[in-house]
Each structure stands twice: as C-alpha cells, then as structure tokens.
Design a binder for these strands. Structure first.
Lengths: 338, 338
DNA sequence: CCCCTTTGTTGGAACGTTCCAATAATTATG
DNA sequence: CATAATTATTGGAACGTTCCAACAAAGGGG
C-alpha cells in the first residue's frame, strides 16, 4: 500500500513551481500560463494526486458538499426523488453526502448532526420525521430545503412538494366518475402528508355529496400496513379504495384478492406517488403520480439558489401531480341481485 | 443565521481551560479531572459546539468514515444490504458516506474518486460495474470489500457473497422436484453474478439429465428486461422459468400472464435475491433468498477488521442462500390433450 | 523537607489546502 | 528607452483540529 498520498507540495516540486500555482492551476484560474498549467496537470496525473477534501474545506471555509437526508431507503419513492437531486447537484459541481434516517426521528437527528460536522453547506430533507422544533433549529443553522412535506410554516426554509390535497381529490374524482360511491380511504398514518391526502379525500367526497359514505381507516405507508387496513376496510363493503401510497396500495390489493374479490372487477384500488414499480405490468396500479425526479431536481435548484443568496425569502414550490389510470380501477359493476 | 460556528477555542475560553484539554475531554480521555470535564461539556453544550470533521480528519490523519458505493438505489436489494452495513458501521463508531453509481461504470469511478478525496478509510462496494483493472487499482489504494460479486481474484480485497452457482441449482432442483423439465433460464445479462447463476442452472440441468432441455434467454436485471426475455422464452413452451433476479421475475410474470397463461398453473416462476417486496402477498414470489442484511453486516465487519490489521490475507465469505417457496411455483400439470 | 511519581494541564507544531499581498517577469505606452 | 500596466508567480498566514513534549500541582516515600 502506498505510504501516504501525494500532496499539493509533491505536485509543485515535480512541476517545478510553487504550491500556490498548483492550487491556482487546478482550480482552473485563468491567470496561469499555458506552459505551467500543462506541466502541473501532467505532474498531478503522474503522481495520482487527489486533493484532500478535508484540507480544502478547512482552508476555503466551504465544502462544496450538500447533505441529503432520506426518510428511509426502502421505499422506492425516495430513490426516484434522489435521482433528480443528484443529477442537478452534480451538474453544479457539488458533492452530496447521503444518509438515511431509517424511519426513526432520533437517528435522523443524529445523522443530520454528522452531516453538519462535515461542514455541508446545505441540507435536503427528502421527507423526514422531525418535529417542528427540531426542524426550526436545523433550518436556523443551515440552508435547508424540504421535499415532499409541506413545511412552509418554518421560516427561512425552502420547500418543494406536490399538492396532496388536490392529488387526493383527483383520485376520488376519478373513482366517482367510474360510478363509485362507497370509497374507503386507507390513510397513511399520523404524518402531515397522510393527513393532507385524507383531507383531500374528505373534501372531494363532500363535494360529490358523498360525505355520508366517507370512511377513513387508519393505516400506514408500508405494504403490510396497507394489507391490514384493507382487511379492515372490507367490512364497509366498499367498491373502491383510495390508499395513501403505492406501496400500501400493493398490500391492499393482496388483501382484497385474498378475500376472494377481484381487482378491479369487485373493488377498484388507487394509490399515490407514481413509483416506477407501480407501472410494472404485473402490478399495473392506477395512481396519482408525482413528478418525483422533478421534485428532486427542483429541490436541488432551490437550495443552490439559496446558497448564492442566503437571505432571500422562502421559496415554496407546489408542483402538480397527475392521474395515471392503469388496470386497478374500473367502472363499478352492478351487484347481481344473486 | 449564526455568523460562524463555535470552535474548540470558544469552548476552551468559556470553560477557562486550554484547547488541548477540551480536545482531550471531548474524546473521552481518562486523564481529565471530573471538574474540568464537567465544565467543558457544559460549555460545549451551551455553545452548541460541533467538532469540525474536516479539521479533525486533517489533524488526526484519519476520518473514521467509510465509503459505500451502491450499484443503483432503485433495486431494493441494495437498500436491504445497506441496512446491514449501516447498522454495523454505526455500532463501531464510524460514519458512512453513501454514493450511488447509477448503474454506470464511468460515474462509479467518479464517485469513488470523490469518496477518496474525503479521506475515507475503507470502501464497501455493494455490487459494481468496475472492470478488473479499475478494481485492482481501487483495492491497491484503499481497503476494500466487495459484496454480492465474486471478486476473489483481486489481491488484498475482501469479499462477501452468496454462492450463486449453488443457489441456481437449488432453484432448478426445486422445479425438477415439482416435475418440471422444460425449464428456461432468463439470464441477467453480461455480468459475473448472472453468469454464475446461469452456470448453476446449466449444471443442475445436466445433473438431472435435462441438458437437452436447457435453454438460456439473454435478459437483464430490471422488470422490463424480465418481461421481454419471458416473452421470448415462451416460444420454447416452457413449464417453468428460472429468472436471474426478483425484479426481473416480476416482469416475467407479467409477460406470462399477459400471454393468457396462469402462474403457477401453466408456468412456474422462480426468482433470486429474496427482496422483501417478493414476499408481498400480491407478488408472493418463490425465490432463492440471500441473507441480505447479513451480507451487509458481514461486509462491514470484514472491512473494519482489515482496518485494524491492514496486511492480513484476503477474507472470502460465501454465505448460503435459502429456497423460499411461495406461490409462483407449483407442480407441473399434465397437459390436457385438449 | 526535598525529590520522585503521578495526575492534570498546556503551548506549539503539524495536517494539506486556499487566499492574499507582495514580487518577478513580461508587454504596452509615451 | 524608461516607466507604467499587465500578467504570472510566490511565500506566508490562516482554517480547526490532534498529538506530543513539556510543565505545574499534588501526593508519597525516604
């Protein structure tokens, strides 16, 4: 193993110039002669020189690194948002440090702390479980953008999300247009996103004069949660289920099918998020699709803008989602009077 | 926004001691009096002091950070391995920097480079697309452990993987025991893992005297690749498909069902990996399950061991996988002579 | 009571960069 | 052809830590 990596001084002496000039040359300064630049680059290449990010960040007082916290790596929705973030961030020459909160608030705090120790310049929160207090504190310490959650109440923080209330209404509208009335909502549990989606459901049901048919079953955002909630929902003999997210919807479908009913003939199911998996032909889930990569891209853009101009007003983007009709929803079939 | 973060000097002066003592106290040295320690901790807390990782890593010449490269964040198999890695690494007080190669070798090199700039002390490769040359180079530069791929030929590198050949044989044995003979293999494309699985298929077929029935269709590791390969495989009118991984198997099932055939009545399908998703009731895929989290945990352990003892021999762990029979495989049904 | 340990504590050098002010070399200007 | 302006290069300070050798203070043994 190589004893120790070459430093800028090694490059300098090999190229026969000062360390300062090497620094200048490698950072692409225009005031370096072509001749020197060529020799320096050659020397660097020959030595396999790789700048020490720690030293750089210490001296420059900036790390050119953004931190990204993701709620949990298992739900593919986050991988898709992440794609958008990464693409944009790389394009602007920043690095990114990714950590996962593992769906646990305490660990989230912990990981953010680590991120801060690494002198990240900004933070992207791709969904999170932080309380308002923690969030406020984080936002006060470092430029932060939150994705997926409506945290618009926190000062100095940017936000990018879709309109969950409107999305949920689209879902209900779609079901109603297919003739459904007994539509049950399987909520995603006690978090703002799920609350908003349940709210949209309630509003849309009311608008269609179906308030009396509205039923919300407490569920969660995992497939097993969806399965359980659906089992429970069957007691209301619904003709359609609006499920808080795609993964839970997949669980719900399993429950419906196990009960001997067919999707969509007996019961229609619609999800939320628009993960790629939902488009898989054997899943073929109708859903309200968020532009996930776009959400990520936008978040990165907003954060980078704020780094340029730290004191600007908070920017709140609310992008619109889109109904994607696939095979799990269909017209309500008249019940045969057996 | 706070102008600049408090440094160790701020803590020192507030606690009325020298910076050295603060350093000692915060790193938990036993030779600090209780009184001083208490005052220092109090001061640090009051100031919201957070050590600067860049400075620390520069001074200490070690970062206590491991790099983790994952092939691609979209396949859940990697999230599950990652869980194991993270748990173990955290337990040992290291941080982890996670990057995704986005399924692109050039970007992989790039990301590893970034990781190295951050002075990571070791590298975990959770599947990768690196050529032998690049790999050798990386391994020569930094302690590296590779997960999921059999890179045992690279000197100085540790390896943790399952036995893909044996796993594939288990799959075939299972199908044969159900009476299948016309078993087609949908390969995962041109990468070592897929080659090994195809190899196991071939061997098992030969052992059962079914060499003449052996057919391998070139596919890939995504659901669409599985779909396409399955469509093609149907020309051989198989009674069973052995698919290179779970995600592709899900695509294959879609193709089979679209062709009007039933899984498993007409065609049995078995996957490989054992992702959680495959256990989802609406998927219910029979598969060869690798102990994913265990793979990750073991990889982390091996890497940390090597950090202790850099010159030890390469360690190659080959953990065994397990057949998980679910609903997509069944006995071959005698073809009704219509 | 002096010296020797032991226990706590400290200042300074080092880590590998960036950045700035200062200098050297070159070219343009009158 | 001297001087000014420009272009290229440099040494040194700084960044916030850790680590080491050195020192001060407090006990302990002769």
């Amino acid at each position: 193993m190589s004893l120790s990596r070459p430093t800028i001084l090694d490059v300098a002496s090999r190229a026969g110039v000062s360390k300062s000039l090497v620094s200048l040359a490698l950072s692409g300064s225009p005031k370096v002669s072509e001749a020197s630049r060529a020799r320096i680059e050659r020397a660097a290449r020959e030595l396999g020189y790789r700048p020490n990010a720690a030293a750089r960040s210490l001296a420059a007082k900036k790390s050119r690194t953004l931190g990204v916290l993701v709620l949990d790596l298992h739900n593919p929705v986050f991988a898709e948002i992440l794609d958008g973030v990464q693409t944009e961030v790389r394009k602007q020459g920043f690095s990114t440090m990714l950590v996962s909160g593992g769906d646990d608030p305490a660990r989230e705090r912990d990981e953010i702390d680590t991120l801060l120790q690494f002198q990240i310049e900004g933070l992207v929160l791709i969904s999170h479980r932080l309380g308002a207090e923690s969030l406020r504190q984080v936002a006060g310490e470092i430029p932060t953008v939150t994705v997926t959650r409506d945290d618009s109440a926190i000062p100095g923080m940017d936000m990018v999300c879709n309109d969950d209330v409107a999305g949920a209404r689209m879902a209900v509208d779609h079901l109603v247009s297919l003739g459904h009335r007994r539509i049950v909502c399987l909520s995603g549990g006690d978090n703002p996103v799920s609350h908003a989606r349940a709210q949209g459901y309630r509003e849309a049901m009311a608008e269609h004069g179906l308030s009396d048919d509205a039923r919300i079953v407490a569920g969660g955002l995992t497939d097993t949660a969806g399965y359980r909630a659906a089992t429970q929902a069957l007691e209301y003999s619904p003709t359609a289920l609006f499920v808080a997210n795609d993964i839970a919807a997949m669980g719900a479908i399993a429950a419906v099918e196990e009960s001997g009913r067919d999707v969509p003939r007996d019961i229609s199911v619609i999800g939320y998020d628009g993960i790629r998996l939902a488009g898989l032909r054997s899943v073929n889930l109708t859903t309200v699709a968020q532009p996930l990569a776009e959400l990520g891209r936008l978040a990165a853009t907003r954060l980078l803008e704020r780094l340029e101009e730290p004191d600007r007003d908070s920017h709140h983007d609310r992008v619109s989602s889109q109904l994607v009709v696939r095979g799990t929803t269909g017209s309500v079939t008249p019940v045969p009077t057996s």
